[in-house]
Simulated scan of single mutants.
Amino acid sequence: MITSAQLRGARAMLGLTTETLAAESNLSVTTIETLERDVSSADAKALVAARAALEARGISFLASGSDDAGGAGIRFKHWAEDGGIRPENLNATNDD
């Protein structure tokens, strides 16, 4: 089970509007807003659709305790395949 905070965070990480996520998951904006407020009161099929749309864009949802002792979270599945620079390697000389 993913949390509302994970959904909000994943959408923010991708820079998506609620409208874009709604369109990509075939849900209404109101349904996305409901999921982001309280997943426990939402339709399970809607949650699956929103999660699938975010995962298709490269988000990975982490369950509580799945990464050492950390809590539930999100991260990108893969780094850029186009030769992008990892965050720890960013500096003033490669800042475009």
Rank of each mutant, 00 (worst) to 15 (best):
M1G: 07
T3W: 08
T3M: 06
T3P: 04
S4V: 00
A5Q: 11
A5D: 15
A5C: 05
L7E: 02
L7A: 08
R8M: 08
R8Y: 11
G9L: 10
G9A: 15
G9N: 15
G9I: 02
A10F: 02
L14C: 04
L14M: 01
L14Q: 00
L14D: 05
L16N: 05
L16K: 08
L16P: 00
T17F: 03
E19G: 11
E19I: 02
E19A: 11
T20G: 01
L21Y: 01
L21C: 03
A22E: 10
A22Q: 13
A22T: 07
A23F: 03
A23M: 10
A23G: 08
E24L: 03
E24T: 06
S25H: 04
S28Q: 13
S28K: 03
S28A: 09
V29M: 11
T30Y: 06
T31V: 15
T31Q: 15
T34M: 10
T34A: 15
T34P: 03
T34H: 12
T34W: 05
L35G: 02
E36S: 00
R37A: 14
V39I: 04
V39Q: 04
S40R: 07
S40N: 09
S40G: 09
S40Y: 04
S40P: 01
S41A: 08
S41Q: 09
S41I: 04
S41M: 07
A42G: 06
A42L: 07
D43A: 10
D43E: 09
A44V: 05
A44D: 13
K45C: 07
A46M: 06
A46Q: 14
L47N: 00
L47T: 01
V48L: 13
V48C: 07
A49P: 00
A49W: 03
A50G: 04
A50T: 05
R51Q: 15
R51A: 09
R51L: 05
A52N: 15
A52C: 06
A53S: 13
A53D: 01
L54Y: 01
R57M: 13
R57S: 12
G58E: 13
S60D: 14
F61R: 05
F61K: 03
L62A: 10
A63E: 14
A63W: 07
S64Y: 07
S64L: 02
G65S: 06
S66Y: 05
S66A: 13
S66P: 06
D67C: 01
A69G: 12
G70W: 13
G70N: 14
G71N: 09
A72Q: 06
I74K: 02
I74H: 02
I74V: 09
R75L: 13
F76S: 09
F76M: 14
F76G: 03
K77V: 12
A80Q: 15
E81Q: 13
D82G: 10
G84V: 03
G84I: 07
I85V: 14
R86F: 07
P87F: 04
E88N: 06
N89E: 15
N89C: 05
N89K: 11
L90I: 10
L90K: 13
N91L: 07
T93N: 11
N94Q: 10
D95R: 12
D95V: 04
D96T: 06
D96E: 15
D96F: 10
